[in-house]
């Protein structure tokens, strides 16, 4: 596959220990949180840099059940080691009814420690979500179904993949013209996926991928598939599916899929991401606190 020169992002996964990356880049580590205070059960690497952009990635989380609660507890444990400042939600923020008590049971209660710590959430809408969730302040959508925001050098584009109408396409094409150093999009439906139940959303891909390529997007996060998958870069863009933060479709990743770089579909999971200069580091933590994937993506300057 020919990779456009401006999209030369090297993906080095699970090979370099984060400590090695830290040494190579000559960066100072952030002070470690007192891991002993939260127990030793979680396997999380601390961030490399103190002033990096650090965030949590969760998807398909709004069940209100034990799986969500236990996975959320690990997120809070992870925060003590990896102090992310905000969380991105990849949709299906609430399954089933969306009565006021459901907002409590499926969001506010499981993530209470994060909310109490003033961690901001920025949600995308999934197919199970009432679009009126956009008026809920804790979802950070500002009343919009699709929106963008910036954290330091990183521009985030949050799409409503349930309904990719002309307005949204025109908005996206314009917004992607940003000069941000990093451009990251997230939305519910994966345009590349090895899921047996859903698979790649090729219809959506035909609309958004040309814009992603044209405007040098670097990374895409999606949910919908109830597992974790890191895909082999597609046309120079790095794709992650992280739709298993409460729901789980065990064994759904197609064996030997040509798309998969790493898959994990035996347990719920979430991602921790750090963007530091030209490097994005990620780690994936399971419901039981195990690190099941990690690596880094290196952005070539001026791409």
């Amino acid at each position: 596959m020919k990779t456009p020169p401006v999209r030369n992002i090297a993906l080095i996964c699970g090979v370099l220990a984060l400590a090695t990356a830290q040494a190579v880049l000559g960066q100072q580590p952030a002070p470690k949180a007192p891991a002993a205070a939260i127990g030793a059960a979680i396997d999380v690497e601390p961030p490399v840099a103190g002033d990096s952009v650090k965030f949590l990635v969760i998807g398909d989380s709004g069940t209100g059940d034990r799986a969500q609660t236990e996975t959320a507890a690990q997120m809070w444990k992870a925060h003590a080691i990896f102090p992310y400042e905000f969380a991105i939600m990849l949709g299906d923020n609430m399954y089933g009814s969306e009565r006021p008590q459901d907002y409590v049971a499926k969001f506010e209660r499981p993530y209470k420690p994060l909310l109490d710590a003033n961690i901001a959430f920025y949600a995308a809408l999934g197919n199970h979500d009432d679009p009126n969730q956009r008026f809920y302040k804790n979802f950070g959508m500002g009343g919009r179904r699709f929106y963008s925001y910036q954290k330091k050098d990183v521009r985030f584009y949050v799409l409503d993949s349930n309904y990719m109408n002309q307005d949204q396409q025109q908005w996206l094409d314009k917004e992607l013209q940003s000069n941000a150093k990093w451009k990251i999009a997230y939305f519910h439906h994966p345009i590349y996926s090895s899921g047996g139940r859903h698979g790649s959303e090729v219809d959506l891909r035909s609309i958004v991928e040309p814009m992603f390529i044209k405007h040098n997007l670097h990374v895409v996060f999606a949910g919908h598939e109830h597992f974790y998958e890191r895909l082999k870069p597609q046309k120079g863009i790095n794709y992650f599916t992280a739709g298993g933060s409460a729901k789980l479709r065990a064994g759904d990743i197609i064996d030997k899929s040509a798309l998969t770089a790493k898959g994990f579909d035996t347990e719920q999971s979430f991602m921790l991401v750090e963007i530091d200069g030209d490097v994005m580091r990620f780690q994936v933590i399971s419901r039981r606190g195990k690190r099941v994937d990690s690596g880094e993506i290196r952005r070539i300057p001026n791409s």
Binding site: N127, N162, M164, N165, Q166, D203
Partner: peptide
């Protein structure tokens, strides 16, 4: 029905239909 998901509307089909207000 408030307990049912909304089916994703295929973007390619949406392009062919008359545009709607928000």
């Amino acid at each position: 029905p408030t307990t049912l998901p909304l089916e994703t509307f295929p973007p390619a089909l949406l392009r062919k239909l008359p545009d709607l207000p928000p």
